[in-house]
Amino acid sequence: MSLKSKKRISNITYHLLVLIGGFIMVYPVLWMITGSLKNNTEILNGALSLVPPNWRWENFARGWRGFGGISFATYFRNSIIITSIATFGTVISSACIAYSFARLKYPGRKFLFTMMIMTMLLPGQVLLIPTYIIYNKLGLVPSPIPLLLPHFLGQAFFIYQMMQFMAGIPRELDEAAFVDGCSRYSIFTRIIVPLLKPSVITTIIIQFYWKWDDFQGPLVYLSQPTSYTVSIALKLFADSTSRTDYGAMFAMSTISLIPVFLIFLFFNRYLTEGISTSGLKG
């Protein structure tokens, strides 16, 4: 067998295996998407077929109608606004804080870093109510501010992530720039931020879908039905004391995947470009 055909076979096996694996991975998602074209009995009794027996597009119309006269258009608008601002805030604030913790040396830095790690160790459920009380005393409830403000004050998960990425940027770069007369501020904007691109993109993708998915925050801090987010609206379908319109719920769950998926597709390009130069092929 020639080297060329050997390579071709290896290529084909690679694609085949990855595709099969991929199908297994997305099967449950496909089931959900095709479920949006089934009715309750077809979803619950039709077991695991991916082909809807009758294509029930009306599920989308029924779901989109929303609740109490407020359609999903409103919920989507609210979610997009909140999620975009929060993601933006997370990127800006976390990058600054990470730079401070990872690159600058000053008294108190270790302490601050320990505190930040500690904030991740207490489960949100016990902090929820005391936090709510603070925002309530500040007169910020109900409003989206409690949902957004924390993102401008740094998110521990992403601060730490960016710190780890900064650890991969050679320190010689900063030092050289410093000797050349760059301030700490311009080192951050001119050297660190550009090199942090993969980490920033990761942050955008993950923070976006976390915020999109967040149910607890909007539930607690928003009140009027016109300000509900998609995550709250989806839960409204599943009141445990009454019947559930699964078709409509699946239809809206499917649509709610779109923004998250688009963000991923859009930014994923920058993660893929050039990544393969790591030369694992050889």
Binding site: F67, Q216, L219, Q224, P225, K235, L236, F237, S240
Partner: peptide, 13 residues
Amino acid sequence: NYEFYDFDGYFQK
């Protein structure tokens, strides 16, 4: 001014 939720969400709120 009314608000409505699903059962679990209602009690969390």
